[in-house]
Simulated scan of single mutants.
Amino acid sequence: MNTTSRKLLNLLQWAFPLSGRPWKTLGEKLDLPESEVLAQVRALYDDGVIRQIGAIFDTRRLGYTSALIALRVEASRLDEVACAINRHPGVSHNYQREHDFNLWFTLAVPPGSDFETVAERLTDLPGVERVRLLPTLRLFKIGVRLDMERDEKHLDRDQAPSDLPTRPPRPLTLQDKTLIRVTQEDLPLVEEPFAQLAEQAAVTQEQLLAWLAEMQAMGYLRRFAAILRHRKAGFTDNGMLTWCVREDRIEEAGRIAGAFPQVSHCYQRPTYPDWPYNLFTMVHARSRENCERIRERIAEALRPLGVSRSAALYTLKEYKKERVKYFAETAEA
């Protein structure tokens, strides 16, 4: 992958232009013609590096209930259990991880659904020995941005995350839900992609772009961006690094951990007698060694808060990774 492709991937992840001719705008930043930008994006899709370009919405703000769920599954039944869980359309991520709790997945259910009933039904399977629901209690950071240009081992801490809504939310309308269904799909690789999406939704391009800006200001839309396949992009290892933090220091710890650019997700989650870790940080790196070095740096930063216990759960197998389709007519309750 050449230098220009790496710069392009960073722009697609971090600064996708919400404009009538986004590829032209990107080309101006890269000193490339619009046609060349489109050609490079198509090649990155063909190579499997780009998974999707589209709107990334905030699950909870849309009214969905979601949680991370940890299972301890009998080893001989792990594949069978994972396959059964994957059938639910609200399951977006499902991984085998290195731990006694060996299967971890995320579940989101639409407004009006009873989350605990759905989760109980979904996990009532032969071979499942223990279930732990781990909903988000506090969100400190969310947003996967793989830096394609710099070595993740040497990145300095950023400012504390501050992607806050700038406008009070209003209730979602039927048209909002139609536009969500349209914009959460893959962006067409044509010169004016938003015009094509607008036509599908029976609005003008100007109305669609204004709506995206409004959704972002209200916090419904987290960002419009490319999602990469980590391994194809060179990030072969990811670790769920978890920390045991005193309740009175959790907010400070979350700000510190979330300021590391290598951390894509940072949450407070509940604890159990057999799971004492309440701060979760996700790290993506080009090697296990790099993950461990980043873990050491986070541990050093948290040490003044009295944090000494942690657990690193590395992915052994990816069973499922895809976006939840919000307000889909086929969604299960």
Results as ranks from 00 to 15, higher is better:
299 A>S: 15
220 Y>C: 10
303 R>P: 01
109 V>F: 05
272 Y>T: 03
26 L>S: 04
288 R>A: 11
94 N>C: 15
129 E>I: 02
286 R>Y: 00
332 E>R: 13
16 F>N: 05
10 N>V: 03
39 A>M: 09
72 R>W: 08
216 Q>T: 14
202 A>K: 13
281 T>W: 00
172 L>C: 04
173 T>K: 01
113 S>A: 15
204 T>Q: 01
209 L>F: 02
195 A>D: 08
117 T>M: 14
172 L>R: 04
331 A>Q: 11
311 A>H: 12
163 D>F: 07
105 F>R: 09
30 L>Y: 04
235 F>L: 07
250 I>E: 06
87 R>Q: 15
14 W>E: 15
202 A>M: 10
67 A>R: 03
298 I>G: 09
331 A>L: 12
165 P>W: 09
156 D>Y: 03
233 A>I: 06
10 N>A: 06
33 P>I: 13
147 D>V: 05
279 L>D: 02
218 M>V: 01
302 L>P: 04
163 D>N: 11
181 R>H: 04
94 N>R: 08
75 A>C: 00
85 I>M: 05
326 Y>E: 10
184 Q>F: 01
162 S>Q: 14
110 P>E: 08
307 V>E: 05
217 A>R: 13
322 E>D: 11
90 G>P: 04
246 R>I: 01
271 T>R: 11
231 R>G: 03
150 R>K: 14
63 G>D: 11
164 L>T: 09
314 Y>S: 13
138 R>E: 13
110 P>V: 10
149 E>T: 15
208 L>M: 04
305 L>T: 04
109 V>K: 01
306 G>W: 05
43 A>V: 06
103 L>E: 06
298 I>K: 07
51 R>W: 07
270 P>L: 13
157 R>I: 06
74 E>N: 07
183 T>H: 02
205 Q>M: 10
315 T>G: 09
214 E>V: 06
243 W>V: 10
50 I>R: 00
91 V>Q: 03
294 I>P: 06
59 T>D: 09
174 L>T: 14
281 T>E: 03
259 A>M: 10
220 Y>T: 07
16 F>M: 12
20 G>R: 12
86 N>F: 00
230 H>I: 00
121 R>E: 15
192 E>Y: 03
202 A>H: 12
303 R>K: 12
75 A>D: 15
221 L>C: 08
273 P>T: 13
308 S>A: 13
177 K>G: 09
295 R>Q: 14
225 A>M: 11
279 L>W: 01
19 S>F: 00
234 G>D: 08
88 H>F: 08
90 G>C: 03
76 S>A: 13
154 H>Q: 12
257 A>K: 09
278 N>D: 06
89 P>S: 01
155 L>F: 07
6 R>A: 06
33 P>T: 11
73 V>A: 03
223 R>C: 11
115 F>N: 01
58 D>F: 08
329 E>N: 01
68 L>Y: 02
227 I>Q: 10
221 L>S: 05
126 P>G: 14
41 V>L: 05
80 E>A: 13
198 A>R: 00
60 R>Q: 12
12 L>F: 08
191 E>L: 07
210 A>Y: 00
265 H>V: 14
331 A>C: 05
285 A>H: 02
207 Q>S: 08
2 N>C: 04
107 L>M: 05
125 L>D: 06
21 R>D: 09
130 R>T: 10
145 R>A: 10
136 T>H: 03
126 P>Q: 11
331 A>T: 06
255 R>E: 15
97 R>Y: 02
245 V>I: 14
52 Q>C: 05
